[in-house]
Design a binder for these strands. Structure first.
Lengths: 187, 187
DNA sequence: CAACGATACGGAGGGTGTCTCCGTTTAGCA
DNA sequence: TGCTAAACGGAGACACCCTCCGTATCGTTG
């Protein structure tokens, strides 16, 4: 692992910054690699040296943001409200995370269970966070018996993807999340 | 509305048939318009005269299949089991429909609420079918108060999209559908 | 400081995809 | 049979992701 040249790290950072901005504004599909390169003031060759595929670039662009998700799970669980309220709080922040970048919800949820995906690391983070939530609630006996983290990731990820794609109001998202929460909690 | 020439209707039908086959086998993205044209033995110009975009072709290809969905809703409701069983039966056939063509679940669910989409007619069909199911169950007092058809379409469509994309077993789909059903039914 | 080798850069262009344009062919009718 | 409007076919415009390789730059060494 040799140290990178100074111009290389500069470019890498600038590209990731620009890409993050563009992806947030316009969504994955609406941003072309040429556009990223031009905006960052580099050639596409440079872009591809740093990020071998568009998905890898996307992965890097949303990196910093995804790292806070575990903290969000803890925050949601830390409250002392009813289990339903805490679960909903987690769901809502989860959806809020996933929809912060247009297109991210579907891409990440699609990658669940695919070890070869560029998003595999992010998926693990999400799975772990959900597992913690489940464990905490199960310890209180608040859940039905048969809930597992992957299932929950997929369900909530599906909701997030739909919300993101149709640009729904948070209220619409919350109504769907309430259904999922009620389906998961002991009645 | 003039009558079409004989060769035109022949070609239109052959193209739709071939496209249906290809889309079912390989999924939307993996089928190119050139491939459809070549398989159907026509030029791409002809293809585009009959179907102005790839999505329009897709819409036509899955047309016949989608028309049976209302019947499926009735069948599911006709049984005399518990509300939960009937609801699940509907969900399962709904997911089975949506996943019969690879990629259809996400495309149709994405189009919910978008009147300009080529799939708008299909979305209405789905919405109506779900509305009937809701009405029937609500009449028995089996539902929580605040369920609406669009919400349900999105929830179940989201599950279908995830199942389709990750090529999950029916068992995995059913587990998620059970969560949705439990969340929707009065407890 | 100068010269050199490794590293990084840029952008032309390859491959594939959707869709358009227009010269050619053909169906259907008088 | 001849005519016209309808339909056909495929070259190619344009956009996209990505590769390749000649050129420029960094940073180290004599």
């Amino acid at each position: 692992m040799k140290p990178l040249r100074a111009d290389a790290v500069r470019n890498r950072e600038r590209i990731a910054d620009i890409a993050r901005q563009l992806f947030r504004e316009k969504g994955y599909d609406a941003v072309s690699m040429d556009e990223v390169a031009k905006s960052a003031g580099v050639g596409v060759g440079t872009l591809y040296r740093h990020f071998p595929t568009k998905e890898a670039l996307y992965d890097a662009a949303i990196q910093a943001w995804v790292e806070t998700v575990t903290a969000a799970a803890d925050t949601a669980l830390a409250g002392d409200g009813a289990p339903r309220d805490r679960l909903l709080a987690w769901f809502e922040s989860y959806v809020e995370f996933l929809t912060r970048h247009k297109g991210a919800a579907w891409r990440i949820t699609s990658a669940l269970g695919d070890e070869g995906s560029p998003f595999a690391a992010k998926c693990r983070t999400y799975l772990n966070a959900n597992q913690r939530v489940i464990d905490a609630l199960a310890a209180e006996g608040a859940l039905r018996g048969d809930v597992d983290a992957m299932q929950l990731c997929r369900l909530v990820g599906g909701v997030a993807a739909v919300v993101d794609n149709s640009e729904l109001e948070p209220a619409a998202a919350n109504a769907m999340l309430a259904v999922v929460a009620d389906g998961v909690l002991a009645s």
